[in-house]
């Protein structure tokens, strides 16, 4: 039998020699642009790697200055502005101490509540007297009194409505959402429209991505941009996710989505199923996010996966 590695080498999708020609000026411009940015002292980097993401999602691998580079003049005039992630809360116990920022994905859409969870998950104290605000399309939480000029205060702390958050999670969901089946682009567009209707999200649009691969067998959906669900061609979810994902999806569907549970029951069960069907070690527990929806009869569940699994359950606190 031929060595499987020989077969695997043959599946290399792009050899270096097959990359498209890139103008040398593109590379030199990138190199020069990067080298013109401030560089943190190496010793300080080694001794105080304090900027964190939510613990189990792994170490933060990106400097927040990334977005400052791309920001250009529009961002340059904001004192202390440093970027962060546009797709989740940026939590700073001290606005002037950017290296201590904790960032993560949206959990509930309430910036203050999510920062509280993220800070605790990172082993840090919650932000004192927290205030949520947006600045240049980014959402931050800092102590009151540290809000920079030009910020828009979020009085309620809610940056993403529950409906919009559920649409985001559902688009990535592999239990019964956007990643649960191999759909054609038209099928995914229809699925997205049905989801928008289910969630009562009026005024949202479903658009197709600029780049479409006619040979791609399936599609993806992304609802991270407010008001828009983007659908594009993509790989089969079966090939995208690890095989172990699907037994977990089956269990979450059968034991939560297809039954009638309270949100608390669903959360406990989701965490238990994750430990049983993932390859997580005993000390690598998952904390599912529970969002109370007392107007619903039964709990529902979304689970997405990238570097790690994020599970969100929505439902009533008591059975009808």
């Amino acid at each position: 039998m031929t060595d499987p590695m020989t077969y695997l080498r043959a599946t290399n999708p792009v050899r270096q020699s097959e990359l498209p020609p890139i103008n040398a000026g593109v590379w030199s411009a990138m190199q020069d642009s990067i080298a013109s940015t401030p560089r943190a002292p190496g010793e300080a980097q080694q001794q105080t790697p304090r900027r964190k993401r939510l613990g189990k999602r792994g170490a933060l691998t990106t400097g927040l200055a990334v977005l400052l580079i791309g920001g250009g003049a529009g961002y340059a005039g904001i004192e202390g502005w440093f970027g962060g992630t546009p797709q989740g809360p940026n939590c700073l116990a001290d606005w002037s101490d950017q290296d201590a920022a904790v960032i993560g994905s949206w959990l509930t859409g309430d910036a203050i509540a999510d920062c509280d969870t993220l800070m605790r998950g990172a082993g840090l104290a919650p932000i004192e007297d927290p205030v949520a605000f947006t600045l240049q399309d980014y959402t931050y939480v800092t102590p009151a009194g540290q809000v920079p000029g030009g910020a828009h205060i979020l009085a309620s702390g809610v940056a993403v409505t529950p409906q919009a958050l559920e649409m985001r999670q559902s688009a990535f969901d592999f239990v019964d959402g956007g990643n649960a089946a191999c759909r054609t682009v038209p099928e995914q567009v229809e699925w997205a429209r049905t989801e928008l209707k289910r969630l009562g999200l009026q005024g949202w649009s479903v658009v197709e991505a600029d780049h479409q691969d006619p040979d791609a067998p399936c599609s993806w959906a992304d609802a991270q941009e407010p008001g828009v669900v983007t659908v594009g061609t993509g790989a089969d979810p079966l090939d995208t996710f690890a095989a172990g994902t699907w037994p977990l999806a089956d269990q979450l569907r059968a034991k939560i989505a297809d039954r009638c549970l309270t949100v608390g029951e669903a959360k406990d069960l989701a965490e238990e199923l994750y430990m049983k069907y993932s390859s997580a070690s005993a000390d690598d527990t998952l904390t599912a996010t529970a969002i109370t929806d007392d107007a619903s009869d039964c709990a529902r569940v979304d689970a997405s996966i990238g570097g790690s699994v994020q599970i969100t359950v929505y439902g009533p606190t008591a059975k009808p």
Binding site: Q163, F174, A181, T194, G200, P247, S296, D297
Partner: peptide
């Protein structure tokens, strides 16, 4: 794919 033949609709969400 486990979900291929499984209905992928969800119960209608409540309003918040």
């Amino acid at each position: 794919l486990p979900a291929a033949s499984t209905p992928v609709t969800k119960p209608r969400a409540a309003t918040w």
